[in-house]
């Protein structure tokens, strides 16, 4: 595993080059394209194996779109995304499927990210059903129970439903779901933004513990520099679909270069 936190070092696990995601604006009498929203506009960066890259920006800066493009929930307009040296952004949906075992995502909203009609076992076990069809229901139960233990929940939570859990507990379930397939890379899309401050720290610590234990790589998306600074090795600052500053976490905090970064920093309470 490479030691350096430098973005240009060899063997990046994820490499994003000139990524553009444009959404058309339809209008006029015939609903034709009258313009486009440049959600992500020519973005390039790398993520090193085992490290955490923070992606910071205000809402609608395009950070969530990048996360979704990586896991193919949104199709890129142009540019490439490479994983482990292979270009994955142009693969067909079927060809990308094996990569869904390696790349997973955690969502922001703990209330809408769990299907309210399914039990916790069904929610977490679904990934196993899809990717490990050879597992028996008993195997799956055992594995889900183990995952629940990993994220700090109890085995007897298996047959409960999402509405019986608090926001922080739900986020833990979301993490367990992402971990079910033994991924290498996690897109954490504002995983703590919707939580109380005290709970935020617990979840961030859990993510850090899991990273150490499982050797995970994170792309950590947030609008709050303080959270990102705490967990990240390297930080990207985004504004209006472009990356305006990229530096190590300390450098960003100590010596911000860009006005926008300073603006974001001024919103962070000094401790």
């Amino acid at each position: 595993m490479p030691e350096s936190t430098d973005a240009s070092s060899p063997d990046p696990i994820l490499k994003v080059e000139n990524l553009k995601v444009y959404f058309p604006i339809l209008g006029g009498v015939f609903r034709h394209k009258v313009g486009e929203v440049k959600a992500v506009d020519d973005v390039s960066f790398e993520v090193q194996r085992g490290k955490t890259v923070g992606l910071v920006g205000e809402s609608s800066s395009g950070k969530t779109t990048i996360g979704r493009a990586i896991i193919r929930l949104t199709e890129p307009t142009a540019g490439t995304i490479s994983y482990d040296g292979k270009v994955v952004s142009k693969l067909s949906a079927a060809a990308f499927r094996p990569y869904r075992k390696k790349i997973q995502i955690i969502f922001q909203d703990p209330y809408n990210s769990l299907n309210p009609r399914l039990s916790i076992f069904e929610i977490i076990g679904e990934a196993l059903e899809i990717h490990f069809p050879e597992m028996t229901p008993a195997d799956r139960r055992a594995r889900v129970a183990e995952l629940l233990g990993k994220v700090g929940l109890k085995r007897d939570h298996l047959d409960r439903y999402p509405h019986e859990f608090s926001g922080g507990q739900r986020q833990r379930i979301g993490i367990a779901r992402a971990l079910a397939v033994n991924p290498e890379f996690l897109v954490c899309d504002e995983p703590v933004s919707a939580l109380d401050v005290s709970v935020q720290a617990q979840i961030v610590n859990l993510l850090q513990d899991l990273q150490e234990e499982l050797g995970l790589t994170y792309l950590f998306i947030a609008h709050d520099l303080a959270v990102v600074e705490h967990i990240s090795d390297f930080v990207l600052v985004m504004n209006d679909g472009k990356i305006v500053e990229a530096a190590s976490a300390e450098a960003i905090y100590e010596n911000p270069q860009h006005d926008y970064t300073r603006k974001l920093l001024s919103a962070v309470p000094k401790m």
Binding site: L73, K101, Q104, G174, R177, V181
Partner: peptide
């Protein structure tokens, strides 16, 4: 949760 299911494959 729909996106999560799609992300899982």
């Amino acid at each position: 949760f729909t996106l999560a299911a799609q992300a899982i494959g």
